[in-house]
């Protein structure tokens, strides 16, 4: 397994630009970065693209959609859709526009027999050579992370796109790095992690940070600048009162 990941850098050119960062991968473009990233992928004739359920926004009429179960029974417990849609270009190439669920940024990696772990709602799309599975984090890690008990494991060969809520910050870890559990988007397989408390016991309860992920090893972590939770708690007081 190669240690070097083929991570596509973000184009400083905000205008739509078609990329094919790896000659083995598909052509695609990303617009609206970093606040409202939107992905367009060109699917060659008779090839198939896996896309997160309900993320398709536009598509050519020669694309045929098929819905499949994703990753088995574990899916039921993640709170995410257990379905994944497969779009196949019939009789010629076709283009599909994909809108991630949350306003935020998007990244592309070409996996070359490599593995990347995604936070549960970060998956956007991948080509057929990439296996997408739920990975049980273990009760302790999953429970204390305050997030999901599952991660999504993407491995194999092909294109992978994932998205965030908020902006994305890339951190190359060499040694150790601490990330708030709610801010993790994705990380490469060379890293291992522990869910630990930050600081002492007083910090555990009162710092507002609670449990954090302590990554160690060599690899990259993608983190998001926002969390959905604080937005939801802020909206809460604005609910109307029942008559």
């Amino acid at each position: 397994m190669s240690a070097q990941f083929n991570i596509t850098p973000v184009s400083p050119d905000a205008a739509a630009k078609t990329l094919a960062p790896d000659p083995r991968g598909l052509k695609f473009s990303v617009q609206g970065q970093p606040d409202y990233a939107f992905l367009s992928v060109q699917i060659p004739a008779n090839q198939t693209l896996k896309v997160e359920a309900s993320a398709m926004a536009t598509m050519d009429t020669n694309l045929a959609m098929k819905t499949r179960l994703r990753g088995g029974l574990g899916r039921f417990m993640t709170g995410e859709s257990i379905f994944i849609n497969e779009f196949t270009a019939q009789g010629g190439p076709g283009e599909i526009g994909i809108a991630p669920g949350a306003p935020g940024d998007l990244r592309h990696v070409y996996l070359d027999n490599q593995t990347i772990y995604l936070q549960n709602s970060a998956y956007v799309a991948s080509t057929s050579g990439v296996a997408v599975e739920s990975k049980w984090q273990g009760l302790v890690k999953g429970f204390f992370s305050g997030e999901s008990l599952f991660l999504i494991r993407c491995q194999g060969q092909g294109d992978l796109w994932f998205s965030s809520y908020g902006g994305i910050i890339e951190i190359d870890v060499s040694g150790e790095y601490v990330v708030d559990t709610g801010n993790i988007v994705a990380f490469t397989a060379g890293l291992s992690y522990n869910v630990t408390k930050v600081g002492g016991y007083k910090s555990l309860f009162f710092s507002g940070e609670g449990f954090v992920c302590r990554f160690s090893g060599q690899g990259r972590v993608w983190i998001q600048t926002r969390k959905v939770g604080p937005l939801v708690s802020w909206v809460w007081p604005f609910r109307p009162s029942k008559k």
């Binding site: 040694g175 601490v178 983190i223």
Partner: peptide, 11 residues
């Protein structure tokens, strides 16, 4: 949201 692992934190 993230930090170097050797930064000390007190509350």
């Amino acid at each position: 949201i993230a930090m170097s692992a050797d930064v000390g934190i007190t509350t």
